[in-house]
């Protein structure tokens, strides 16, 4: 299964701090962890994101679209980086996540979210439903 692992933002990550000695050590540990993920065939993708001050939001309400400039207030809900991992199950994802060095100077959090897969729909996904879904995708401008 494929999971996305979010590195949640902290006040420090939102400040976009210049590299300190602590951070150099963390980067080194993170580099080693990433190498382990690659060697185990788990790593599919991953990167870090700039603080939300560099970001924008587009708010939808009916036909209207409002653009909101960052930074955004609710730090704990923001994302500072992500991985995409291919693992057998959530247990394996959790086991890998526990091995991750703390990505932040203070307390921080990772969040693991599995991707939807066709198999998740099981028998509920009849051929008719699948076709309807595909037609919907096409209507939504899939192609």
């Amino acid at each position: 299964m494929r999971v996305m692992v979010f590195v949640k933002a902290t006040e420090d990550s939102e400040k976009g701090l210049p590299p300190t000695e602590d951070m150099t050590a963390m980067f080194e540990a993170m580099g080693k962890f990433n190498e382990e993920l690659v060697a185990a065939g788990v790593m599919v993708d991953g990167d870090g994101l700039k603080p939300s001050s560099a970001g924008k939001r587009i708010a939808f309400d009916g036909p209207s679209r409002a653009v909101i400039d960052g930074p955004f207030a609710e730090t704990r809900e923001l994302v500072a980086g992500y991985w995409v991992w291919e693992v057998k199950d959530m247990d394996e994802a959790v086991a890998w996540a526990k091995r991750c060095p703390n990505p932040m100077p203070g307390p921080s959090e990772l969040e693991i979210r599995p991707f939807y897969e066709m198999a998740d729909f099981g028998d509920a996904m009849t051929p008719e439903l699948a076709e309807r879904e595909q037609k919907l995708r096409e209507k939504l401008g899939g192609e």
Partner: peptide, 14 residues
Amino acid sequence: CAEAQRLGRILAGL
């Protein structure tokens, strides 16, 4: 396929 890709990724890492 996923199993083979994982093996391939392990080999590519090593």
